[in-house]
Amino acid sequence: MSNREEIRKRLQAIFQEVFDDDELEIDDATSADDVDDWDSIMHITLMVAVEKEFGMQFNAEEIGKLSGVGGLIDLIEQRAG
């Protein structure tokens, strides 16, 4: 399994928890338009959960520019690398 796929799987569990939807499936193309309730408040809740899961912190500029799963995986990969 690629590192990217591993990150996606861990993110999927976070998304399901944050958005309270066990059926929620995400991929690189998933954006805020595809997920019910993905608004600014949920975005910040999501990012706090991601920071905790991956043991990293993002600044406001990074959080503010994200709009989809692909970009989030890129960011985690960059930070981990």
């Binding site: 600014s40 975005h43 520019k65």
Partner: peptide, 10 residues
Amino acid sequence: EHHAVFYGAV
């Protein structure tokens, strides 16, 4: 266009 997640509330 640039901050889609934050547009919805506005």
